[in-house]
C-alpha cells in the first residue's frame, strides 16, 4: 500500500498483507533444521548415557584428564626426540669446545651407570661378595690388610681391640 492514497488513518488490522511473514531463511536452512537440532540433542543424550554406563565415573574422569595426559605424552615425545638427536650426533658426550664432557669422563671411569646391564652386574658383584660359602684364604687377608693399612695402624687396631 502506497503512502499517497492514504486519506484516513491507516489501520494495521485492515491489511492482511501486513500479517504475512516478511523474513526469509537462508537457502536450505529449514530443510536441515530438524536434522541439526536432533544431532545437537544427540550430543546431550550421549553425555546423559555416559553417566549411566559408567557408574564409577572412571571414564568420565579419564575424559577430564585426557587433555593433561595428551600434553604429558607430547612433552615426552618431544623430549625423546630431542634426546635421540643429541645421542645420535654425540653432542651429549662432548663439551662445547669439542672435548669429552665431565659426564662422559665419569661414564668412562664407570662412576656413572648408563646401561641397564651395569646395574645388573653391580647387583651380581654385591651378591657374590655376600655369598655365605665364600672362603677367605688367610694369606689373602694378610696381604689385603698390608695394602690397605700401615703397620702402625694395624698395631693401633690390635691395641684398641684388646
Amino acid at each position: 500500500m502506497s503512502k499517497s492514497y492514504m486519506n484516513e488513518q491507516y489501520n494495521i488490522t485492515d491489511d492482511p498483507h501486513l500479517k504475512s511473514n516478511p523474513f526469509k531463511a537462508p537457502e536450505g536452512y529449514l530443510e536441515s533444521l530438524e536434522e541439526r537440532i536432533l544431532s545437537l540433542a544427540g550430543i546431550v543424550q550421549g553425555e546423559a548415557a555416559e553417566e549411566v554406563v559408567t557408574p564409577s565415573g572412571v571414564w568420565r574422569r579419564f575424559g577430564i584428564l585426557k587433555p593433561a595426559l595428551l600434553l604429558a605424552c607430547t612433552f615426552g615425545v618431544i623430549f625423546g626426540m630431542g634426546y635421540g638427536v643429541l645421542r645420535l650426533t654425540g653432542t651429549l658426550d662432548k663439551s662445547p669446545n669439542g672435548e669429552d664432557s665431565y659426564y662422559a669422563k665419569m661414564v668412562e671411569k664407570g662412576l656413572i651407570k648408563t646401561k641397564f646391564i651395569d646395574w645388573i652386574e653391580e647387583d651380581l658383584e654385591y651378591d657374590d661378595f655376600y655369598e655365605e660359602d665364600q672362603d677367605f684364604d688367610e694369606e689373602e687377608v694378610v696381604s689385603w690388610l698390608a695394602t690397605q693399612y700401615s703397620s702402625m695402624e694395624l698395631a693401633q687396631l690390635y691395641y684398641d681391640e684388646k
Partner: peptide, 13 residues
C-alpha cells in the same frame, strides 16, 4: 538481505 518485505512491512518491523 533476508528481509523480503515491502516499505510498509519494513515500517511495521
Amino acid at each position: 538481505p533476508l528481509f523480503d518485505g515491502d516499505e510498509l512491512q519494513l515500517s511495521l518491523q
